[in-house]
């Protein structure tokens, strides 16, 4: 079994590994059939993004990526309308982006995959170098930077980063970069909206997560085996 060097929780939890393709093609229909509330937001106006870390080229890359990963459909508005780009920008500008809680002393060695993250880069530095390297790789392969690719090229390039097939010359490993971006997109989509993502609690509505009000002493019996439908409540809703 091959082991990734980098945080694989997102991948593991979304079970992308191995196995025959399930009946994924039929899923949208059955999801509707079982009553998943479609979260159509007709032409919802997003506030213009104000970035504190990403430069315009980097922002264009992230916007293109989150909109490809989270397209507008019957399940939710698209990534930028959910604020996933803003979530990432704020995370990179925060202590986390600057290496908070990360041991940053050398010497630096690649190590073996089981030893985890060993790059001499804070998350912010990983994004900065990773986006530049990704755009350079896109230019080399497609003659255009990532945000100018067509959807099929974008898909191909993202799969290439995910598997590590795309090589970032002189940059960080593409797979390490992409694993971090992927994890951050999931955080933005399903974390509390106060961090900039999950706008309108659309990520929570998509799956039926009720948010922060969780007094279920009686519900645990009353709703055992039954659907529990409520309007989700976020931290700022209660603050």
């Amino acid at each position: 079994m091959k082991e990734d060097a980098f945080d694989r929780r997102a991948f593991l939890k979304s079970a992308v590994a191995g196995g025959a393709a399930a009946a994924a093609g039929t899923l949208p229909k059955s999801a509707e059939a079982q009553g998943t509330a479609p979260t159509k937001t007709p032409a919802q106006e997003s506030p213009p993004p104000t970035y504190s870390f990403l430069n315009p080229d980097e922002a264009a890359f992230i916007e293109a990526l989150v909109d490809h990963m989270v397209p507008a459909d019957q399940y939710s508005p698209k990534g930028t309308d959910l604020g996933l780009n803003l979530y990432i920008d704020r995370a990179l500008a925060s202590g986390w982006g600057k290496g908070d809680r990360t041991y940053m002393q050398g010497p630096w060695r690649p190590g073996v995959p089981s030893q985890g993250y060993q790059l001499p880069l804070t998350p912010a530095a990983l994004y900065r170098s990773g986006i530049a390297a990704a755009n350079a790789a896109c230019a080399k392969t497609y003659g255009r930077r990532f945000d100018k690719l067509d959807p099929a090229q974008r898909e191909e390039f993202m799969q290439g980063m995910r598997s590590g097939k795309v090589v970032f010359e002189g940059g960080p490993p593409s797979r390490a970069f992409f694993a971090t971006v992927y994890q951050n997109v999931m955080e933005g989509m399903f974390g509390d909206p106060m961090y900039g993502g999950n706008r309108g609690k659309a990520g929570w509505k998509m799956i039926g997560f009720p948010g922060v009000i969780a007094v279920h002493y009686q519900n645990v019996e009353k709703f055992r085996g039954k659907k529990y439908s409520v309007e989700p409540v976020s931290i700022s809703d209660m603050s």
Binding site: G19, M69, G203, F209
Partner: peptide
């Protein structure tokens, strides 16, 4: 919680509409 726990059948794509459909369907 939903960042860490979003079960989908093996073989589901990791992003896009198919991923969202499966995530929405199988969370509960």
């Amino acid at each position: 919680l939903p960042i860490g726990y979003r079960p989908v059948p093996a073989g589901t794509p990791a992003w896009g509409t198919e991923w969202k459909a499966a995530t929405a369907k199988w969370y509960d």
